[in-house]
């Protein structure tokens, strides 16, 4: 079974399903119609092509990146990055920095990369509404309310636990230094550094005077 085809089929289904859940995505998809966005992600052995029309078609390409870049048109954009850098691409303001740091290679139209980023960044899915289509309003509301309550409870519990463990480690067992003590220590180290620097300068001056005499 061609694994790359299974991969692209899964991604394609996921993307189009998500886009169909956001009624505003059609407006963001429209300016991308006819465009192609290609991503080479290390260590994937193939490139991923996103073709835009009234939906997104995902293909994989075995073509080497250089050959693909040679075939780019004004409606295409190709990026090469690593799996680690991929999450950073969410923030389009970081693109220039990533290119300068050579963590991202971009060829073709930058505008397409920005529009693709916006397409997914601005996804606004009303999950409760979609669940209600399969169940009913009351059940969907209850499920999401319970989810939110559970989330808040977990959040509170995590904060409390963090505080308790912190107190135990710092105050009771004294396994770690208190935050204020660390700050005080840092200040003292800074003062010491300044004193040493001053002493060094004075020594240099004394040496110069001794040499003159």
């Amino acid at each position: 079974m061609p694994a790359s085809a299974l991969f692209s089929a899964t991604i394609e289904r996921l993307i189009n399903q998500m886009l169909s859940m956001d009624p505003d995505s059609a407006a963001r998809l429209k300016p991308l119609a006819g465009s192609r966005f290609v991503i080479f992600v290390t260590p994937l052995p193939f490139g991923i092509e996103l073709h835009f029309s009234d939906r997104v078609d995902v293909l994989t390409t075995q073509q080497p990146r250089d050959a693909l870049i040679a075939s780019l048109t004004a409606a295409d954009c190709c990026i090469q990055t690593s799996l680690d850098t991929l999450p950073t691409l969410k923030d389009t303001s970081q693109l220039t920095r990533l290119i300068q740091e050579k963590k991202l290679n971009l060829d073709g139209e930058l505008r397409i990369a920005q529009q693709v980023s916006a397409l997914f960044q601005q996804l606004d899915i009303d999950w409760e509404e979609h669940l209600a289509e399969h169940t009913n309003d009351v059940l969907a509301h209850e499920v999401f309310s319970a989810g939110k309550r559970m989330h808040n409870t977990l959040l509170t519990f995590t904060r409390k636990l963090s505080r308790t463990v912190g107190n135990a480690v710092v105050e009771e067992k004294q396994l770690a230094a208190h935050r204020l003590a660390v700050m005080h220590f840092n200040d003292e180290v800074s003062e010491l550094r300044d004193d040493v620097a001053r002493a060094e300068v004075r020594l240099q001056k004394l040496e110069e005077q001794a040499n003159k005499n």
């Binding site: 790359s4 085809a5 006819g34 293909l59």
Partner: peptide, 14 residues
């Protein structure tokens, strides 16, 4: 998947 792979190898473009 076989057909999808065929399309992948076609190099079809606008």
């Amino acid at each position: 998947l076989w057909k999808r792979y065929t399309i992948d190898c076609s190099g079809a473009r606008a």
